[in-house]
Simulated assay, not measured.
Amino acid sequence: MLIVVALGGNALLRRGEPMTAENQRVNIKRAASVLAELIGEGHSVVVTHGNGPQVGLLALQAAAGPGDGAFPLDVLGAESAGMIGYVIEQELANLLKQRLFATLLTQVTVDPRDPAFVHPTKPIGPVYDEGTARKLAAERGWQIAPDGDKWRRVVPSPRPLEILEASVISFLVEHGVIVICTGGGGVPVVARDDGSLCGVEAVIDKDLASSLLAQQLKADMLLLLTDVDAVYVDYGTATARALRRVGPKQISGRDFPSGSMGPKISAASEFVAATGRPAAIGKLDDACRIVRGECGTWFEVSALPPPSQPARR
């Protein structure tokens, strides 16, 4: 079974951890062991990943240098995708020595008229207390928004329209290569009037791009891995309930945070609606069990009304 596996930020850096190379290596090594187990069960995987903390850090570093030396977000996104992909590829290769791997920078087209350019929502970089965030926003011209009990910089996140390297990825998969791609949602580009491409100042949502990639590759399943074991209704409250099997229409209209679970649910629902194949959301460590249907939240066209379970205590 061909599975597009989207690694959430927890695969690279757990919330509250210092953003060090060592911490990221430890977390990626853990994610690689999970992916290796999934591959060991006979599945073919294409791996995508987030880059929010990393691209934000690179932007901060660029801003600290000479004013004429700062790079735009599309270039920083490509830089972070290469950096993260390198570590994922290396740790996977350490576990699966007989397999072939490729990390591929991925361009993704967006609409220059997308309203996201006027209303930034995608959090990047470190978290701050509100006072520090407002001070930095005033000094640097940032837009900021709450992220849990902290605040972060937010940037435009236009909807992905096409994965330009999908045919290359498909070719590699057909030849047994495990591909790491669409890092950070891919590098956002737009077409000029003459048909040439150029990057834009934005960060694409990794889950929506992963869903689009899975559709273009005709994948058998989309697997969105995070640090929560399932999708919950009323998450964080005493009445929280884990959803186990749902149809896209059954979950539409519910209110989920746009900065966390919301895009994952949209991505899963869009893949199921477009392909008729399943998508699932769950905890990184449970990946194999999720694919077997033993845990996590499954999205299916023919899902029964969603059963729920009490939140874990």
Rank of each mutant, 00 (worst) to 15 (best):
S302C: 10
A116F: 05
F117K: 07
G176N: 14
R134I: 06
L161G: 03
V47R: 09
I144F: 03
A219M: 00
L60D: 13
V231G: 12
K283Y: 14
V118S: 15
A214C: 05
L105P: 11
F271W: 08
S269R: 11
Q107H: 11
A62D: 13
E89T: 13
D220G: 14
E130M: 13
P72I: 14
V187C: 04
D111F: 07
Q107W: 03
A287N: 03
M1S: 15
P278F: 06
L213A: 02
V45M: 01
P306R: 10
V4I: 02
A133C: 10
N51Q: 07
H49G: 08
G176H: 06
A63R: 15
E130T: 07
D114Q: 10
E41L: 13
L223H: 01
D205K: 04
E201T: 13
G141C: 05
G52S: 15
G148R: 12
K97H: 13
S302M: 12
T275L: 00
A279N: 05
Q250I: 11
V55F: 14
R245Y: 12
A242K: 07
R152L: 05
R289W: 01
V231Y: 13
R152S: 08
P123N: 08
V45F: 00
P263N: 10
D205F: 08
E165A: 04
R153C: 08
R140F: 13
R244N: 11
T239L: 14
